[in-house]
């Protein structure tokens, strides 16, 4: 395990040790001895039939792991769920990525996968919200939508012959601005129903990308596409509004309170990721609340003391959920 690159004093070391031991004791009841390393043989029952999944191979009639991870069994299927590997996309995942190239009719997006993802011009909604064929003019204006190094949010559409395709067919997807992008190991983010979070008391948006890219930014009102389509007579006024509002937003700058909230949330995520705790919106909010309740300055959240506090808090939280 990565030793924390923090200078802990003696008491902090002991406290951290104790918290982690508690976590270990809580986890070990659930599944023990399921961890394997490269070239460990996996005990299987051949009589029931067997399907070898990811991270396994067969050597001399023995099932052997090819990655470090945890053995999972689903009926006949035996596979090794690897930790700390690159992101493996699944259709429908919500991801955050960075545009690295504007190519003909497509953007190339870096999403922490072994290949770059492709976002076609045709698989995203145009800013004006009209459904139509993409013309050569649209293609020339692609840079007005996304440029290189823009951070965007999209959904995994599927694998095509030329790689992984993304789509952004809703107003909630698209370019992200005025916030921070954080990268955490992708195994810490679980797939859930909801990946977009609007934290109302802080006025910020939180996007937990399945690929381990997390966006923390100022809240922006989403104008729902479908709604716009339905109210066709209001369409013009609304379209006008949305065309003005970006410029308006450019002018009025983010209030300091919001910026502090963004930084506080971002640092909470950083602390959780250095400790290797799974990152969900509940845990993030608890960490943020913990930091503000004991008046920790934002920059001190990355320090040793807060880290230890988070670990202790997590130990308490997990033992509580266990009891329930």
């Amino acid at each position: 395990m990565k030793d924390l690159q923090l200078s802990l004093n003696q008491t902090q070391k002991v406290r951290l040790q104790r918290a982690l031991e508690k976590l270990e004791s809580l986890a070990s009841k659930a599944n023990s001895n399921a961890s394997v390393t490269v070239a460990d043989s996996i005990p299987v029952n051949y009589e029931d039939g067997l399907l070898k999944g990811h991270g396994t191979s067969e050597v001399n009639g023995e099932v052997v792991a090819t990655v470090c991870g945890v053995v999972e069994r689903v009926n006949k299927l035996v596979y090794v769920r690897s930790l700390r590997a690159r992101y493996k996309p699944e259709v429908g995942d919500i991801i955050v990525g960075r545009v690295i190239e504007v190519a003909p009719k497509r953007w190339r997006v870096e999403i922490n996968y072994s290949h770059d993802a492709v976002l076609m011009l045709s698989s995203m909604n145009l800013p004006d919200g009209i459904q139509r064929r993409r013309t050569a003019l649209d293609e020339l204006n692609m840079r007005s939508i996304f440029e290189e190094n823009d951070v965007i949010c999209a959904e995994v559409r599927g694998f095509q012959h030329d790689g992984l395709h993304l789509q952004a067919r809703s107003q909630k997807y698209g370019k992200l601005g005025r916030g921070q992008l954080l990268t955490v190991p992708s195994y810490l983010v679980k797939r859930r129903k909801q990946h977009f979070h609007h934290l109302e008391n802080y006025g910020i948006d939180l996007i937990l990308g399945c690929n381990g890219f997390i966006w923390v930014g100022e809240h922006v009102e989403v104008t729902d596409d479908m709604l716009v389509d339905h109210k066709s007579e209001q369409h013009d006024t609304k379209a006008d509004k949305s065309s003005i509002s970006p410029e308006d937003q450019e002018k009025n700058y983010t209030p300091q309170q919001t910026r502090e909230n963004i930084c506080r949330t971002a640092n909470a995520i950083r602390a959780l990721s250095t400790l290797g705790f799974s990152i969900t919106v509940e845990v993030i909010m608890e960490t943020v609340d913990l930091s503000s309740s004991i008046n920790v300055a934002i920059h001190e959240m990355l320090g040793a003391e807060f880290c230890v506090l988070v670990a202790e808090k997590e130990a308490v939280r997990r033992s509580m959920t266990k009891k329930k």
Binding site: M1, L20, L23, E24, L26, A27, S28, A30, S35, V36, T37, V38, D40, C68, G69, V70, L83, R84, Y187, L188, L275, G276, F277, S278, E314, R318
Partner: peptide
């Protein structure tokens, strides 16, 4: 090396929790 890796994997797993 095997010991180091196994210890590391276990740590990552239990720290992540369920």
């Amino acid at each position: 090396i095997r010991e180091v890796l196994l210890e590391n994997t276990k740590q990552l797993e239990y720290r992540r929790g369920t």
